[in-house]
């Protein structure tokens, strides 16, 4: 007798558990507000990427066209796949000293794995990760970018 009761108990318990699961999916079915999908081209204007999203490396410049890069080359050394090339030049300061400044900070977006090592190791916080993501171009050459703007120079605050 007990086995029959257990048998029936098992059946009703199972049905209850299954109905509970169906309740969850049924709730989502009738509540379209719960949809989490981002419909990309439509929501382009309002789309905000999450904080840790890594889009591309950029070098911020202030209003005087000045950046913080001292051409030390640490980012180039730390890049695991050679996406960064530093081309520096020697400049004479007004005091007559020789000083290394950045000529071209070349960044190959096509080779970058977005590991963030260059940003982590930069001693003067000259480069950051931008959250842009529309990187598609028709020519691979366009993926090679020069990060320092033409005519820019080292910010006054950063003395070597």
């Amino acid at each position: 007798m007990r086995s029959i009761i257990n048998y029936l108990k098992e059946i009703f318990g199972t049905v209850r558990a299954l109905l509970k699961g169906m309740g969850v999916t049924g709730y989502y079915f009738v509540h379209p507000r719960e949809i989490v999908t981002q419909q990309y081209p439509e929501n382009r204007a309002t789309l905000k990427m999450f904080d840790r999203f890594k889009g591309e490396v950029v070098m911020p410049h202030d209003e005087n066209n000045e950046h913080h890069c001292t051409a030390c080359g640490i980012c180039e050394m730390n890049c695991p796949n050679g996406s960064i090339e530093i081309i520096s030049k020697i400049q004479l300061t007004p005091e007559g000293k020789k000083k290394k400044v950045i000529a071209k900070h070349i960044y190959h977006l096509g080779m970058c794995t977005f590991c963030n090592l260059c940003i982590k190791t930069c001693p003067s916080n000259a480069i950051i990760m931008e959250q842009t993501f529309e990187h598609a171009v028709f020519n691979r050459a366009k993926l090679t970018k020069v990060l320092n703007q033409p005519g820019s120079k080292l910010s006054k605050g950063d003395k070597k």
Binding site: T25, G26, Y28, F29, P32, I35, V36, T37, Q39
Partner: peptide
């Protein structure tokens, strides 16, 4: 139906 039950939009 599957999409709505999984909080997605489905083919659109």
């Amino acid at each position: 139906v599957c999409a709505f039950m999984q909080c997605r939009v489905g083919p659109n």
